[in-house]
Design a protein around this nucleic acid. Sequence first.
DNA 1: AATTCATATTCCCATTGCGGAATATGGATT
DNA 2: AATCCATATTCCGCAATGGGAATATGAATT
Lengths: 122, 122
Amino acid sequence: MELVKIYECLCDRTRLRILHLLGRGPLCVCHFQDVLREPQVKISKHLGYLRARGMVRCERQANWMVYSLPARPPRELAANLACLQDCAQEDPAFQRDLARLKKLAPKPTTPSSCGCTTAVKR
Amino acid sequence: MELVKIYECLCDRTRLRILHLLGRGPLCVCHFQDVLREPQVKISKHLGYLRARGMVRCERQANWMVYSLPARPPRELAANLACLQDCAQEDPAFQRDLARLKKLAPKPTTPSSCGCTTAVKR
DNA sequence: AATTCATATTCCCATTGCGGAATATGGATT
DNA sequence: AATCCATATTCCGCAATGGGAATATGAATT
């Protein structure tokens, strides 16, 4: 994987927040919407950007698309994702996201189920 | 230092090569020109980009501008620079740069002297 | 003061990225 | 088959970026 391509994926705040959250486990789009509190189109487009570049995988579960980090990422990607998680620990904004996520989904999800089964009021 | 700003600096191949080389010690612009083999304007502009964002420092030595990494970089920057050096070890292009540099300047330079004292045929 | 050398800046152009409004898709439910 | 829900895509405008040609700057040397 091209190092520059990785950094291109990392140089947007919304994408950083997405990747940070994915460090905990797979998530569906509605979780991102609830945690990041950004418009649907914005989140969907950044997920598409990451997906097109191989930074995330996704799998359909009925109505929901469950996104996750690649199972065995190449070395450079793994190193940079670890670095991101490390840096995020000192940043209140990332920690706020994580707190919201834990409130929303106390247990990390699995790739086969994001925990969304019923309609969500939004 | 803003994490996103760091990644913005890292998402260009020329800038990555510059930062990688600076990991060994301060360098003047003509060294970058010789090692990277890119046009002067290109190198100068990328150095200006990095300087404007606090990723590198520079100091004038007579005709030469000596660039270096910040003495005590903030944690996020240090982490990412370390990650870059790590990733660069597997990349032939980065290693080729480093080999050229060692041939050109066998000893790492100091901030007060880049080793350029006479005119260089180019 | 005129020239030379190393480096920086300006101007132009083409490409890319981001955001939002509107619309489309695809699966599930009625 | 019609509707609903979650998500994706298209279209638009705007700002930022990268590259090169030409020119400017600033220090040293003649």
